[in-house]
Design a protein around this nucleic acid. Structure first.
Length: 514
RNA sequence: GGGCCGUUAGCUCAGUGGUAGAGCAUCUGACUUUUAAUCAGGUGGUCGCUGGUUCGAUCCCAGCACGGCUCACCA
């Protein structure tokens, strides 16, 4: 992949012309690369292997730095420690027969001090052929410079890997959002805050595992390729198995498989992995995204709300170090307990609609029309209510809020409440104006589940997962189940407004071929 | 998919209807404790692509590509 966009698309003839021109005038990036290739050749001529196999280090640069910083200056001067370290050259400051270079392991940097009279001639020649971005190994003594900078005075220098392309600018870093996503390695190198955000993501994910394992949950892996897509209503990606001559769907949710495991006697399971939905791309949607789903036998959605509060607070404490999250212009307070609000009450709170407007069909349709909701006629009352919620309340729900009171018709896998068969025991968690979690007391009545599937199939089409119904017929204990969108949780914890900023390699259109 | 905005040197950014500038990087030279090192000098651009208007377009217009924001889609 060539990041250079200036080269014209053209015929072979034209390309040849460009090549010929290169040799005389040289295109800019190619000139920079040519400079480095020339140095590479010179190094080889000097007998240097520019890509050696190994270099034993005493410690990583950042570990070394942390340890050495604690040694008092006089002790350092008296008994200079000998070290071997390796890293990427971030900066070179030449001073004639002396030079300084910043060496980094990506976390911290440590200065290398090079003196001509301290090195042999070959090492000095090597140093002069180094570029920003090259990997080197250094052996030397630690000291502090006149200005107090911790440094390693090099006795030995080794080239570990020569870079052929210039690094992004050291001061401003890499700002172009497209380049940052396409060449994430450059983003990570040039923008420390980006690196920190992905480290935060990693801590969050491992924190979830520890939290759930600590409560007796077992991590499992269920199929990514489903013969029947289920567990959600999104459009799936389709693929094909050749020798079985069978269409398969990349999973839109693991739900139906995880519940089979509850049937099978695993009472607490979770899966933390990718889902794929063939829908639009936006700042809150990537076609593949990471979802935590967990199922807990003998629990219900009330217990899940408690667990969710506990888990998210715990994660914020360990990832951010606070229960107050900066979020754009505002802040999110995670202190418990969190607000609970029914779907209807949320609509009423964030609109001028009255309870009567949400009652009979004609009033509901009128309200939906007022908020610009389309395909009104074909949508159920419940769906219209959910649409109204999205149109009025969702974007305002900054503070953590459990939305409850979901209609049965849009919740085919959730169990009804005791006093109202049209409402289910379900909640969605909203924070920062986004849906973060979706949970319910699972429907475990196989006859009722079949009826719901049939109701759904009539309304929206689709195939009934008979294999899942078969499992339910063997008996599933009362169970609470929940899904949490990990990417969005990371967005909240790192204060990023775009999901692309928290996914290392988000889906992008390929650059057009040259 | 719709609307709005953007695309200028490797990177970060200025700028103009008469074919372009800065800082960093790069190259040359000076410099034995610097750290956005400094000083002196130099190289580097079909201003995203294609077409139109114009005597003349990087600039105005249209289409296209890619991206950003937003709306739609998305239990």
């Amino acid at each position: 992949m060539d990041g250079w966009r200036g080269r014209p698309r053209g015929t072979i003839t034209r390309s040849l012309e460009v090549c010929v021109a290169d040799q005389e005038t040289q295109q800019p990036i190619e000139q920079l690369i040519a400079n480095r290739r020339e140095k590479l050749k010179t190094l080889r001529d000097l007998g240097v292997d520019p890509y050696p196999r190994r270099f034993r280090v005493s410690e990583a640069v950042s570990v070394l730095r942390e340890r050495l910083e604690r040694i008092p200056a006089d002790e350092l001067a008296e008994k200079p420690p000998k070290v071997r370290m390796a890293g990427r050259i971030q900066a070179i400051r030449g001073h004639g027969k002396v030079a300084f270079a910043d060496l980094t392991d990506g976390v911290k940097k440590l200065q290398v001090y090079v003196r001509r009279d301290r090195l042999n001639e070959a090492a000095w020649q090597l140093f002069k052929l180094l570029d920003l971005g090259d990997f080197i190994g250094v052996e030397g003594e630690v000291f502090r410079t006149r200005t107090g900078e911790l440094s390693v005075a090099a006795d030995q220098l080794a080239l570990l890997a020569k870079g052929l392309r210039p690094m992004p600018e050291k001061y401003h870093g890499l700002a172009d959002r497209e380049a940052r996503a396409r060449q994430r390695y450059l983003d990570l190198l040039a923008n420390p805050e980006s690196r920190a955000e992905f480290e935060a993501r990693s801590r969050l994910v491992s924190g979830i595992r520890r939290f759930l394992e600590g409560r007796g949950f077992l991590e499992v892996e269920t199929p990514m390729m489903h013969p029947i897509p289920g567990g959600a209503s999104a459009r799936p990606f389709v693929t094909h198995h050749n020798t079985m001559d069978m269409d398969l769907y990349l999973r839109i949710a693991p739900e139906l498989y995880l519940k089979r495991l509850i049937v099978g006697g695993f009472e607490r399971v979770f899966e933390l992995n990718r889902n794929f939905r063939n829908e639009g791309v936006s700042t809150r949607h990537n076609p593949e995204f990471t979802m935590l789903e967990f199922y807990w036998a003998y629990a219900d959605y009330e217990l899940l709300m408690d667990l969710t509060e506990e888990m998210v607070c715990h994660l914020a404490e360990s990832v951010v170090g606070s229960l107050t999250l900066p979020w754009g212009e505002t802040t999110i307070e995670l202190a418990r307990p969190w607000k609970r609000l029914s779907l209807k009450d949320a609509v009423l709170e964030y609109s001028d609609l009255s309870p009567e407007d949400l009652g009979e069909r004609s009033r509901l349709e009128k309200a939906a029309e007022h908020f610009g909701i389309d395909r009104i006629a074909e949508r159920s009352d419940g769906k219209l209510l959910a649409e109204l919620f999205e149109a009025t309340a969702e974007s305002h729900l900054m503070q953590p809020t459990f939305i409850t009171g979901f209609p049965r018709v849009i919740s085919p896998l959730a169990k009804s409440t005791e006093d109202d068969p049209e409402t289910v025991e379900r909640f969605e968690l909203y924070m920062g104006g986004m849906e973060i979690a979706n949970a319910y007391t699972e429907l475990n009545d196989p006859v009722e589940q079949r009826r719901r599937f049939e109701e759904q199939a009539r309304a929206t089409g689709g195939v009934i997962d008979e294999d899942f119904l078969l499992a339910l017929e063997y008996g599933m204990p009362p169970t609470g189940g929940e899904g949490i969108g990990i990417d969005r949780l990371v967005m909240l914890m790192t204060n990023r407004s775009s999901i692309r900023d928290v996914i290392l390699f988000p889906l992008l259109r390929p650059r057009p071929a040259e």
